[in-house]
Write a protein that binds this DNA or RNA. Structure first.
Lengths: 154, 154
DNA sequence: CACTTTTTTTAGAAAAATTCCAGAGAACGT
DNA sequence: ACGTTCTCTGGAATTTTTCTAAAAAAAGTG
């Protein structure tokens, strides 16, 4: 599912608005995240992009991802083994995560805004927080692992 | 909010059912997690418990936490800086996380089972996964940080 | 209760992940 | 185009997590 052509420019505009400089490295990483549904970990992003920009430093990938997360352009998804995967968060969605193979699948739910509202409402009453984003992960078995006959401990 | 006295024995029973051996180390860590609302990271658990059991090894804390997560007794909460915090998951709840100070507050919502059902329903139709648990995190500013006048980039 | 088997713990070493740093380079407003 | 300011690089340093082999300790057996 390739993102529409203007998704990148929209994201870049957001960067400019925040007075964040647009560098080739940032563009490259953003573009990669936008056009891959694989929810890659840091190391994979680095390995994929290093050939395209031979000077790219691993430290830059870390810096850039942390920056994008702070800006809310990208979110982190917890990984089966404590690691972190990265996900371009253009449209709100949540995640189905396979507890066996670790695959992450995006779920686009028309009811999400409403559910989000209910959650924030209760949480605000109970805790006094002011919210601005919501992450949801559902854990289970993907169809492929089900077919393999995998079952889980719990 | 101290957990009722039998919460520990219930959890221990669950361990036995899974044929997981009950060791003093596991009891200690479980007890600590149950009776602290601070959602501690690994290092903090180790530092707190080391004085109580001088032989306790950091590796054991890692092993034990990973075990508890696999068994579904404990869940991981993503931390502001990529780290992980641990949370005893006795009763289903979700989390309000402060983007400024990193505090994690538990939210007990009577509608959670219903919301959970809606999410799983849509997600199952769209992805074919079979689910068995659901994690929700709301990100925002806690009352204290609001009072301090903190505002966020995004 | 003593014995056996199997699992767990320990401690330190090893590996992996992430951050730090100082100098070189590049973006952007003027 | 210039100068200021922010960013990138590469390697070292730090932090986090896992691994390993030997010792200790659970649970099962009769």
């Amino acid at each position: 599912m390739k993102e529409p052509d203007d998704t990148l420019s929209k994201a870049l505009k957001k960067l400019r608005e925040q007075h964040v400089r647009i560098t080739p490295q940032r563009k490259l990483i953003l573009d990669y995240l936008m056009n891959h549904e694989n929810h890659p970990p840091v190391e994979e992003i680095y390995k994929e992009l290093a050939p395209q920009m031979s000077s790219l430093s691993l430290a830059t990938v870390y810096n850039t991802l942390n920056l994008f997360v702070e800006l809310g352009i990208v979110i982190e998804i917890p990984n089966e083994n404590g690691g972190v995967r990265y996900d371009f968060f253009g449209r709100p969605h949540y995640h189905a995560i396979c507890e066996n193979c670790g695959k992450v699948t995006d779920i686009y739910d028309p009811n999400l805004p409403q559910i989000d509202g209910m959650l924030q409402n209760t949480a605000k009453k109970q805790s006094g927080y002011n919210f601005n984003s919501c992450h949801i992960e559902l854990y289970g078995l993907c169809p492929e692992c089900q077919a393999k006959g995998v079952t889980l401990a719990s």
